[in-house]
């Protein structure tokens, strides 16, 4: 299908069954709109999910789709992407699915740089099982399984993805459709593994979890937009910025990378850190991911890292071609004669 698609081409005939008011609706809409503008084709697009509310996503897309088992979508997608490099393979997952039961597959898919695009719907709660704390729930949070407050230190998915050597790591939120579309598009264009964390509101079990930073009137002061080659500044008057306090002033060689927020007028415009997504060393991207202690204070969103590094499936294909070129395409006759043979008359 080479013709331009419309959003309708991407909508399946299934009734969408998320709770009314769920943040997932806006993610679904943003994805469908992005695929139209990007020029993707439904027959070459596959959505693979695990288990959880967000994992129902594939049923609502008129593409190929697999609703697999809890936590294992990245592994399923890995086999698919390695064997079918012609497909656009998306993984739809949540904070429990990706970071708890599926943590192992999540980090290894990123480490190997498998050509899959992981959308991590982070609502900091188990929704489908009706309200237990998840690996991203804040310490002290009261949930059904933590009536006296959660004791678990939460994961920061962006930090984890960067630590797992993700070649594309971004964050967006469900209240800003255009930003989601931009991030999804960037992920789609990236060659290799991409991870986009989506702050997503669960209006039933964890309503308002991100409100302090994503509400319309809070965004300017609490979302720090990361834009390539631009100074990292935010605030209603763009009066705040991120500066680097490295012990020896050396970003990559210093003992630590300390970032802090400062008033631009106090430090001067040229002290403001200029964001570089393509930095090979991920220390600075990681420091940016640690800038905020939680979703109650200024938090960076956008693309943390986008580096070009060989994609796994392509390397597998190259290796097959390389061995064929060196040894010649194998024949079954040769295979059966790999070891010593003898003839009985």
């Amino acid at each position: 299908m080479n013709t331009q698609t419309t959003r309708k081409d991407w909508v399946s005939d299934q009734e969408v069954r998320w709770c009314p008011g769920c943040g997932d609706y806006s993610v679904l809409m943003a994805m469908q709109m992005m695929l139209v503008t990007a020029g993707a084709t439904p027959e070459n697009t596959v959505f693979v999910s695990g288990i959880g509310c967000s994992s129902r996503f594939p049923y609502y897309m008129n593409t190929y789709g697999v609703h697999s088992i809890h936590g294992r979508a990245p592994a399923f997608a890995t086999g698919l992407a390695i064997s079918r490099p012609d497909l656009d393979v998306w993984v739809i997952t949540g904070d429990g699915d990706a970071l708890s039961i599926g943590g192992n597959h999540f980090i290894h898919a990123l480490r190997r740089n498998i050509n899959i695009k992981i959308l991590l719907f982070n609502n900091q709660i188990y929704g489908l099982t009706k309200g237990q704390y998840s690996p991203t729930t804040e310490i002290g949070h009261i949930t059904k399984s933590s009536p006296y407050g959660s004791l678990d230190a939460p994961f920061n998915p962006v930090s984890l993805a960067l630590g797992a050597q993700g070649s594309f790591v971004a964050r967006t939120h469900d209240m800003d459709r255009q930003h989601m579309i931009d991030m999804f598009k960037r992920a789609w264009l990236h060659k290799g593994a991409a991870m986009v964390e989506i702050y997503q509101n669960c209006n039933i079990y964890n309503d308002g979890a991100f409100e302090k930073i994503t509400a319309k009137d809070a965004r300017a002061d609490n979302l720090i937009p990361l834009e390539h080659k631009k100074p990292i500044i935010f605030g209603k008057e763009k009066e705040l910025g991120v500066i680097l306090d490295a012990a020896d002033g050396n970003v990559t060689g210093g003992p630590s990378v300390n970032l802090r927020i400062a008033k631009v007028q106090d430090v001067g415009q040229d002290k403001i850190l200029v964001h570089d997504e393509t930095r090979e060393d991920s220390s600075l991207a990681f420091a940016l991911s640690r800038l905020s202690r939680g979703v109650f204070e200024p938090t960076p969103i956008g693309v943390f890292r986008d580096v070009s590094t060989p994609e796994y499936g392509a390397q597998v294909a190259d290796q097959l071609d390389g061995v064929k070129a060196k040894k010649g395409t194998g024949t079954l006759k040769q295979l059966l004669r790999s070891g010593p043979t003898w003839t009985v008359d």
């Binding site: 693979v48 697999v66 697999s68 088992i69 294992r72 592994a75 399923f76 997608a77 890995t78 086999g79 698919l80 992407a81 390695i82 064997s83 597959h105």
Partner: peptide, 8 residues
């Protein structure tokens, strides 16, 4: 899982 993904 990867084998099953490849089968798909």
């Amino acid at each position: 899982q990867a084998a099953l993904g490849a089968s798909f």
